[in-house]
């Protein structure tokens, strides 16, 4: 059963079961062992593969060499026959037969090596997939274990600290209250500044008709009043 299934099944049971099913230290050790085993198989298969590939290359070179030899001796046989050296031609023919036998053997070997290579490559692919699968399972097992243990630690520290755990609603109320307090304090600070701080003096000066802003309101009102008094001057008014 996959670890995902294990977790789902355990969760359907109870928290205690989840602990036992997944957090079991043996469980992770088994995954770790399986990963180690698969990795070893992988290393072995890779070594075997390079060896077989080397042998295939050697067989290939040998086949080339034998084929060249065969061609060379066939030329010699033709030359011997041309010169009427029948006995020599016969001897060359024997040599060609031997070369042909060896060539067939090497070709057979090369075919077998090629098949081994294909088999080993498939094996490596499977082992790699297995390692990846086990590593994923190990991460899931470790994470579940870690979070479980963390939750245990947290429950324990909450309990031993003597602090009563607040309900979520109470927590929210407190946080909101604190945020409200902060906002209130900032408003109060602004008001205070308005009354007795630097802003207060500015406003006093303004009220007394001193400073940049002094008389601006009156000037605006005067301008609007003047415009209102002369509506006929407005062009294009229906």
């Amino acid at each position: 059963m996959s670890i995902f299934n294990k977790i789902v099944t355990a969760v359907r049971g109870s928290v205690r079961e989840l602990g036992e099913a997944v957090v079991d230290a043996n469980g992770t050790r088994i995954y770790e062992q399986e990963i180690t085993d698969a990795r070893q198989a992988l290393t072995q298969a890779r070594q075997d593969l390079t060896m077989v590939m080397a042998k295939e290359m050697q067989a290939g070179r040998e086949i080339e060499r034998l084929a060249a030899e065969q061609a060379r001796f066939e030329n010699h046989a033709v030359a011997a026959m041309d010169k009427g050296e029948d006995a020599l031609a016969l001897e060359v023919a024997d040599r060609i037969v031997a070369l042909e036998t060896e060539l067939a053997a090497q070709q057979q070997a090369r075919t077998e090596f090629a098949a081994s290579i294909a088999r080993l490559k498939e094996l490596i692919k499977q082992a790699e997939a297995k390692v990846r699968e086990h590593e994923r399972e190990l991460v899931m097992a470790r994470t579940t274990e870690s979070v479980h243990r963390a939750t245990q630690s947290i429950s324990h520290s909450m309990g031993s600290g003597g602090s009563k755990l607040l309900s979520a609603r109470e927590s929210l109320e407190r946080i909101k209250q604190r945020q409200q307090d902060l906002a209130d304090r900032m408003t109060a600070a602004a008001e205070l500044d308005n009354e007795i701080g630097g802003q207060a003096l500015e406003r006093k000066l303004e009220a007394a008709g001193i400073g940049e802003n002094a008389g601006r309101r009156a000037a605006v009102l005067a301008r609007i009043a003047a415009r209102r008094a002369a509506p006929a001057d407005e062009p294009g008014d229906a």
């Binding site: 870690s146 979070v147 243990r149 963390a150 929210l172 945020q179």
Partner: peptide, 21 residues
């Protein structure tokens, strides 16, 4: 300001997990 909602951090294998209960 958010003392009621502490964050717990733990790590396992390849991840760091940050949890707020």
């Amino acid at each position: 300001g958010r003392e009621e909602l502490p964050i717990y951090l733990t790590h396992s294998g390849e991840q760091i997990i940050c949890i707020c209960y």
